[in-house]
């Protein structure tokens, strides 16, 4: 078990290296941070000095090596735009994004799995048809449109929920949470639904098709033939057998929820990492963009590792040798 984790982490290192190389190389061409930082009036001497200060006159691979060397020490440099350490900027913004992502993932799972089970069991009921139609909307409408529609309905027309921002937050150490104030919770609802809706419908459809597959299997027929209760057949025997593919997809989706919260954060002006990234792109703020992409890569690698470990927990056939892990 331990050696498995270690080997997975070792496998992750080249992935991280390649991601950092690609992102760093890409950002060398997205714009000229120097002219943005200097503004309209500057002398050639000022420009040369700034280029030298930023290390931009060095060859590409030296720049990259410096970046990686610093990154390994947790040092991502200063933001060109805000002149603050990147690590600090990201730590400031991370709680907002992570809280949003966790809420969205929770909604997606807590609603998606039961709906999937229901529509898988009662395939022909009118309620199932309704859910499936509804899920088609979730899959096909773009996120920003759903966000705008929700704002229109619940903020503009009904006035129940705020249309932007995080509400009041409480600071616990370096972590700022919106869960402890009423306005924070209210501000969370619309963005979380917007972000989670697509995943919800995806998980629902996945669970449904897996359920339909599993319910046809011989071991379900045999479980019924032994007179086990419906509850045990559906939620014990059937649902557990659908979990392996569901865990895979749900894990990857959690990664994309964190990574692609950008759109939702922009629509709701949510002060998270996605919004930070978009603003940094506008200013060609290379250190922030590179650090953000590295972080997202790390999140994906971690989630994949956790997903693999969950397989082992769910499916005894994957455990090597008797007695398992």
């Amino acid at each position: 078990m331990f050696s498995f984790v270690v080997s997975r982490i070792l496998q992750a290192l080249p992935v991280m290296f390649v991601v950092s190389l690609i992102s760093f190389a890409m950002f060398a061409y997205v714009g000229d941070p120097v002219s943005i930082m200097l503004g309209q009036d500057f002398t050639e001497a000022q420009r040369t000095a700034l280029v030298h200060d930023l290390g931009l006159d060095q060859p590409f691979f030296i720049q990259f090596a410096t970046f990686v060397g610093n990154a390994l020490q947790g040092e991502f440099g200063l933001s060109y735009r805000l002149s603050r350490p990147v690590a600090e900027l990201i730590a400031d913004r991370a709680p907002a994004t992570l809280e949003l992502a966790v809420c969205a993932a929770f909604i997606a799972l807590a609603v998606g799995v039961p709906l999937g089970v229901y529509t898988g069991i009662f395939r022909h009921s009118w309620l199932s048809r309704f859910f499936l139609t509804f899920s088609l909307i979730g899959v096909s409408l773009p996120t920003f449109l759903i966000g705008i529609l929700l704002i229109l309905t619940f903020s503009v027309w009904l006035g129940w929920l705020p249309s932007f921002g995080r509400g009041d937050v409480v600071q616990i150490g370096w972590w700022s949470t919106g869960f402890l104030t009423w306005s924070g919770i209210k501000a969370m609802i619309l963005p979380a639904i917007t972000l989670g809706l697509f995943q919800l419908t995806l998980i629902m459809r996945l669970v449904r098709s897996e359920m339909m597959e599993v319910l046809r299997s011989d071991y379900i027929k045999f479980a019924r033939a032994r007179g086990l209760s419906n509850r045990s057949v559906y939620f014990g025997h059937a649902l557990k057998n659908t979990l392996v593919p569901v865990i895979t997809i749900a894990g990857l989706q959690l990664g994309s929820i964190i990574a692609f919260a950008i759109v939702t954060e922009t629509v709701f002006q949510w002060p998270g990492m996605g919004l930070l990234f978009i603003q940094s792109v506008g200013a060609a703020d290379i250190p922030v963009m590179a650090a953000y992409l590295m972080l997202i890569a790390a999140v994906f690698v971690t989630i994949n590792l956790v997903v693999d470990l969950l397989y082992y927990a769910v499916d005894p056939r994957l455990r090597v040798g008797r007695g398992g892990h």
Binding site: D218, Y219, K221, R224, A225, R226, H237
Partner: peptide, 20 residues
């Protein structure tokens, strides 16, 4: 079912739940 009438199916490789 199970209590009064038991059943045995053809393929033992697929009739047992693999996860329990």
């Amino acid at each position: 079912r199970g209590r009064q009438i038991g059943a045995i199916f053809q393929d033992p490789l697929t009739t047992l739940n693999p996860l329990y």
